[in-house]
Nucleic acid binder design. Structure first.
Lengths: 350, 350
DNA sequence: CTGTTAGCGCATTCAG
DNA sequence: CTGAATGCGCTAACAG
């Protein structure tokens, strides 16, 4: 039954078993061109008996496609990206593509290498959360003529199709909401602003503060590379200030665990002593005590747009000279229990 | 600079530019066989100037490998699997493989189709969280002679290399701990026991209860398909019982959000009125109020073992007749604030 | 040290 | 309607 050698059964084997030629087998299996019903039956039967699985690799080599899409994201430890990856995976499967997934760890060197790998695998298209998005890397991509859409973050001069969230507007809305509640000293904890998504969130905060005529206290703004500890460190610093903020805006879900831990450690009562809001919503925000207000963004929608755009590029290569498009995915401000008017008295946790 | 046609530059182009043959180019680029230093320089230069990226697909077709590993998991919305996928992704990258990721949605039909796709892509190996793991599917895999390790769940008669968590022992330990605290009525909320991981967790609970000589009250055991709502529904049912449990054991992290929501809704005080423990640890368990006790399992360790086993199978095909191995990854019982002795008085939430 | 050639598994002309 | 032949891009003999 199982062949002793580990040779893969090929069209040739099927052709032999069905007493016909490889060309006919190919035609039958792909339902293309002409063939007699009788031969069709023979071929199908032979293929099944031999447990034949066509090699998409060889097929693609011939047809100049790989049925494969590369997805390059920073990592899979952040719900922000996994939600994205999950949605993308589903959509691609539905469209008949396989997902080639890689992580950059936000390391430009690793990113470069991985990009080369992906190109080497002849992906039909690429969905990419760029780390730096520098000219050179984009040049390479463009030179390979491979359809690519940049997601979540933008590349140099937006030379690729791009879909991002409304980072600035969302951040602005969150900050403005806190201001409306009466807060004047609002702490901002954000990630590395060399990524434009983080930068925009920071700008949104600044814009709201300035428009409200609030003094920009530099010491209220904590910007750093997001690691496990960043949220804690930044929160700790804010809490130890002479005049601590009355509200904190965490600009990324990855920052929240640290914020929560430190708030708990200092026994700060949320929201009475400190309001809290986060960019990006997580499941536990709902049943946290208190529930946590957030800027909610739809990962499904960005996935849908990105995949649609990419497939369009792939299927209409003529149009490829079209100028890159830049799209925004809007947000929703979810008001929950973690945001109230500022405390009147001096902080009690000191 | 950029060629007008979208033809991919091949070894032939490089050979022409370097005034040599394709064989030499191949030798230089792969650093195999003999070649003069002088020609090496010419080839490297030509390759760089042409921005040459070798086609791994063609290379693999020739060498009968694809440099690609398939990973088949239920989905990417559960931290349980994303942690796994992330670790696996990193390890494979380090080993020079690309990750082909697909989701089964725990749908056997989709799983079958995806498995065929993956085989069609000529993956060098497969890491698989089987949905049913029935004879037929395993037969197909075995017939293709493709190295495969089953993770998290087991397949029919363990005919594949398998690495699972100590589901039974972990569940037993958690239950036993609650019993030691004095609980006699312990609610169990688990997932579909047609998956052996869930089944083992259920068995672990039963074993601990029986050994302690506690009556098995069927109505305390809630087993259902894990959907968004399952945790809430089951918890609600437990809370509405005439004689509700004094502790709840959630057998999967995916159940916890629902449990938390319903506990909050009924205003049940944890741990005073209800103890709570979960199989699988999540980041927010630490700073939840109260923090939540859990069975912690190391996703990194299962990933490491699985990848090591798989690569070994791939690289030592001779050994392929070796009998499949079955490995267990141990757990840790993390005692936090959500588990205390049972309430003395009648429940107050009624 | 180098070049020519065959063929991996497949789809696609082009003759029959 | 069918089959023989070609080549996708690459590496591995093999012969210089």
């Amino acid at each position: 039954m199982t062949p002793p050698s580990r040779k893969r059964t090929s069209v040739r084997d099927v052709a032999a078993a069905a007493h016909t030629s490889v060309a006919t087998v190919s035609r039958v299996l792909n339902n293309t061109g002409y063939f007699a019903e009788e031969t069709r039956v023979r071929v199908i039967k032979a293929a099944e008996e031999l447990n034949y699985h066509p090699s998409l690799r060889a097929k693609g080599l011939r047809q100049k496609r790989s049925y494969t899409i590369g997805l390059l994201i920073p990592n899979l430890l952040n719900a922000y990206y996994t939600a994205l990856a999950d949605a993308i995976s589903q959509l691609l499967t539905k469209a008949g593509y396989q997902l080639l997934l890689s992580s950059t760890r936000d390391d430009p060197v690793l990113e470069q290498a991985t990009l080369r790998q992906l190109i080497g695998q002849d992906v039909d298209g690429l969905l990419w959360v760029p780390t730096v998005g520098d000219t050179k890397t984009v040049d390479v991509l463009l030179s390979q003529n491979i359809p690519c859409v940049s997601i979540v973050r933008r590349v140099d001069r937006d030379r690729l199709d791009t879909i991002v969230f409304e980072d600035l507007a969302g951040s602005y809305a969150a900050t403005q909401y806190l201001i409306q509640l009466g807060h004047t000293r609002i702490g901002f904890i954000g990630g590395d602003i060399s990524y434009n998504s983080n930068n925009d969130r920071w700008l949104g905060y600044c814009k709201a503060m300035q428009e409200a005529g609030l003094a920009m206290d530099e010491s209220l703004v904590k910007i750093g590379t997001v690691r496990d500890t960043w949220g804690s460190i930044a929160t700790d610093e804010l809490l130890r200030m002479k005049e601590p903020p009355t509200a904190v805006f965490a600009a990324s879900n990855a920052i929240m665990p640290g914020v929560m831990k430190m708030l708990l450690q200092h026994q700060v009562a949320v929201p009475r002593e400190m309001s809290l809001i986060c960019f990006d919503d997580l499941d536990w925000f709902t049943f946290s005590n208190p529930s946590i207000s957030a800027i909610s963004i739809s990962h499904e929608r960005i996935a849908e747009s990105a995949v649609a755009l990419l497939l369009q590029r792939i299927e209409n290569p003529e149009e490829n000279r079209r100028r890159p498009v830049l799209m925004n995915i809007s947000f929703e401000l979810l008001l929950r229990k973690s945001t109230v008017a500022p405390r009147k008295s001096a902080p009690r946790w000191k």
